[in-house]
Design a binder for these strands. Structure first.
Lengths: 163, 163
DNA sequence: AGGTCTTGGTTGTCGCTACAACCAAGACTC
DNA sequence: GAGTCTTGGTTGTAGCGACAACCAAGACCT
């Protein structure tokens, strides 16, 4: 039961999931870079901000929601700021902290980019599945996330969408 | 039916799959770098070689199986060669081509690394699922792969493992 | 045989991420 | 109220991947 090896059925599921994880990021990445000049992670960041109250989040909270290290996020936000999509300002309550806010241009960017991104997701994932499989996939990924994210760092994000 | 948007159930499945794709690679990556000083992609490369006849593959074929561009693979193999895990030699039949062969040290590396990697996969993915969910996941990922990999570039890899 | 096209790889450069070092502000202790 | 610790964030550096440029060998045509 706790053997280090996988049996045939487990292996079959795993190699396919691994293949999806190998192929899918590239597909999303290329579409976003081509159509919006955004990294998939860039898009994730602005999308999180667009759903936040006041389109504003503290860097630490944004890092949690996007599963990024703080240095990585700092660099990314700096680039987004140089492009006028995001602005940073010190948090009034806690002078250590920095707030990141989506600008109007950033909001427009999200609105312009979201449909194409959603279409890519539909084409390559959703439309391949039956409604029943969609429900199964939700339960399966939910179970996996309990292992991957036991502290629920990102759970606030995906739990916003209940099936 | 072809709306650009996702409905609630589709959205629930997608955000969870996206979260898994965000979290899982980091888990695998850290385990392999810590325990074997290998990138996940490095491991993938040597694992593919270890399953090939004569532990040897042409660069182009290896690139197909690992979904890598040729430049990327060239760099990776160069580093693996410097570490003595792989060796390159010109293909006798086609003097343009280069063969990559796993050395004995490379083989030993795979054997030493595989159990820990498999254990990580079990802990974070397999053990979270029921046998029925394993079967469902196989079908779901298989359906997605038909969209992601219509030419079957990587299908030779995952079709080696039938449920 | 000689041009052109295609295939198979390598090398060089730039951008992004991980990791470490660092700094500033709050919290906690005595 | 002066250490000390913790929290929040930025900056610097090194390594990996994407893309473009390039080179060599086979294929194809006449």
């Amino acid at each position: 039961m706790d053997s280090p090896w996988l049996d045939d059925k487990q292996q079959a599921a795993w190699v396919r999931l691994a293949a999806v994880m190998e192929l899918l990021p590239g597909v999303l990445e290329r579409q976003l870079r081509r159509d919006a000049e955004l990294t998939h992670f860039d898009y994730f960041v602005v999308a999180m901000l667009s759903e936040a109250p006041g389109r504003t989040l503290r860097m630490t909270e944004l890092a949690r929601q996007t599963n990024a290290t703080l240095p990585r996020l700092s660099h990314v936000v700096q680039r987004l700021e140089e492009r006028g999509l995001v602005e940073r300002f010190p948090c009034p309550q806690d002078k250590r902290a920095t707030n990141a806010r989506l600008t109007d241009a950033g909001w427009a960017k999200v609105e312009a980019t979201a449909p194409g991104h959603a279409a890519t997701v539909r084409t390559h994932v959703i439309d391949a599945l039956t409604p029943q499989q969609i429900a199964q996939l939700t339960e399966i990924t939910d179970a996996i996330l309990h292992r991957l994210d036991p502290n629920g760092a990102m759970s606030g994000v995906y739990n916003r969408y209940d099936p």
